[in-house]
């Protein structure tokens, strides 16, 4: 199975994990939306503003993210996002949970073999 096929087939899976992907990108350093898209574009989580913006708005509403306005070299000021402590906890929890899930999946396979 090629990577593109996987992208086609596991849409729901990626959709669910996109929040974690965004948390991961923002955890590295303060970024603005286009940076996040740029960073994701090279991965399985590549997406567009149409998906990202509503997600960012919800994550901010739920207290995982916060943003501050900063002047940009060209054009209007931009929103730079950073993780809140809640967001950091959330990322840690998610990572731990994904690790658990991966282990479980491996074990499930192991019983079969």
């Amino acid at each position: 199975m090629s990577n593109d096929d996987a992208t086609e087939q596991f849409g729901q899976l990626r959709k669910g994990l996109l929040e974690v992907a965004v948390l991961s990108v923002v955890s590295a350093h303060e970024v603005y939306a286009a940076d996040i898209l740029e960073r994701l574009s090279q991965t399985e989580f590549r997406t567009g503003e149409g998906t990202l913006y509503p997600l960012l708005s919800r994550m901010k509403r739920e207290g995982m993210l916060d943003y501050s306005w900063m002047e940009s070299p060209s054009g209007p000021p931009r929103k730079y996002y950073k993780l809140t402590s809640d967001g950091r906890d959330r990322l840690k929890d998610a990572q731990a949970y994904i690790a658990t899930l991966t282990t479980t999946l491996k074990e499930l396979g192991g019983h079969h073999a």
């Binding site: 997406t47 567009g48 503003e49 998906t51 509503p54 708005s57 919800r58």
Partner: peptide
């Protein structure tokens, strides 16, 4: 608009 992608509710 294709790059932007359809606006979906993330929630």
């Amino acid at each position: 608009l294709e790059q932007m992608g359809k606006v979906e509710t993330a929630d």
